[in-house]
Amino acid sequence: MRAAMNKPDFALRDFFGDRRQELIAHIPHAVELGMTMEQAGPCQALIRIPQGERLLGAASRGVVFGGVITTLLDQVGGAAVMCSLRELTSIATIDLRIDYMRPSTPGRDLLGHAQCYRLTRNVAFVKARAFHDGELDDPFAIALSTFMLAANPTPPGVMKALRSQQP
């Protein structure tokens, strides 16, 4: 009886935990970049992009191009929104602002952590950071982004993909 009065549970709770690759396996560009879903939980997500030559801004300096960090923080932001939904729906990024505080360190993987800190009926608000292993408190880039909910009339790939995988 009490449970029925509570808020419905997170739609993707079954996918919370470590290394649940299903959450991004249906996104071609995420797969192409070798992204891995390191952790998913209530309203938050952690994603890794392995270091690679093709991600560099200037080959001579070994620093990853800023746009790659945009992709990481957009992706992990979207994942955090999906992990905050009580009912699955499609989402689309409205805008994303990113501050590049310093260059990433050559040769190290990129990690992105995002938290959806406010969810309204139509819009989700997200903050995200990019950092290296063990340096969550010393990010090299920070992003703020907003997402529109129920963005597309057609069911998005994620819903089909995730529903087919649900036990």
Partner: peptide
């Protein structure tokens, strides 16, 4: 195809669009 973010629509990944603007 490997730059797609939403395979259902299909649509380019938002990050790719952002990176293109930045470039």
């Amino acid at each position: 195809n490997d730059l797609v973010g939403n395979a259902g629509l299909p649509a380019l990944h938002g990050g790719v669009v952002g990176a293109f603007l930045e470039l």
